[in-house]
Computed example of a mutant assay.
Amino acid sequence: MMKETLNVQGMTCGHCKMSVEGALKKLEGVTDAEVNLDAGQVDVTFDDSKVNVPAMKEAIEDQGYDIA
């Protein structure tokens, strides 16, 4: 398992947190996603044989947030 921290711009509330975590957890290979609103980051635990960082970034951007 791999772990990656992504910087996400535009997250301000609980709904933002749920949107980003939910989008990531729908991806095959993502086992955990935890948003830290104060830091503007999401920690993602994933199987790199099933999903890659660009796919995770795209899932976040599809929710309307920018990756720093």
Rank of each mutant, 00 (worst) to 15 (best):
K57R: 15
G64S: 05
S49M: 05
Q41M: 14
M11H: 01
Y65T: 05
D48K: 05
E61F: 08
D48E: 14
A59W: 02
A39W: 05
D62H: 09
T12I: 14
N52E: 02
A55W: 00
K25W: 01
I60N: 06
A23Y: 01
D43V: 14
A59R: 06
G40F: 00
E28H: 11
E34G: 10
N36G: 07
G22E: 03
I67K: 10
S49W: 02
K17Y: 05
S19W: 03
S49K: 05
V44C: 14
M56W: 07
D43L: 11
C16L: 09
Q63C: 12
H15R: 15
T12Q: 13
N36R: 06
A33V: 04
V44S: 12
Q41G: 02
T12N: 14
T45E: 12
H15E: 10
T31G: 13
G10F: 00
G40M: 01
E21S: 09
V42I: 12
A59L: 06
S49T: 12
A23S: 09
K26I: 02
T31L: 01
V35H: 00
Q41V: 15
Q63M: 12
L27N: 03
D62L: 11
D32V: 11
A23K: 01
K50C: 07
T31C: 06
D32I: 09
N52K: 15
E58F: 04
V30C: 13
Q63K: 15
D66I: 05
L24H: 12
D48P: 06
Q63T: 06
A39M: 06
V53F: 11
G29H: 13
M18A: 15
C16S: 13
G22C: 09
A39T: 06
G22N: 10
K17M: 11
G40Q: 02
D48T: 02
D32Q: 14
V20K: 02
I67H: 11
D43N: 08
D38A: 14
Q63F: 02
I60H: 04
D38M: 09
E21F: 08
M18C: 07
Q63L: 03
V51W: 01
T31Q: 07
G22M: 10
G64M: 01
E58H: 11
M18S: 13
K50L: 15
E61I: 06
Q63A: 11
N36E: 08
K17A: 07
T45G: 07
L37D: 00
E34R: 15
I60T: 02
Y65N: 07
K50R: 11
V35Q: 01
G14K: 08
G22I: 04
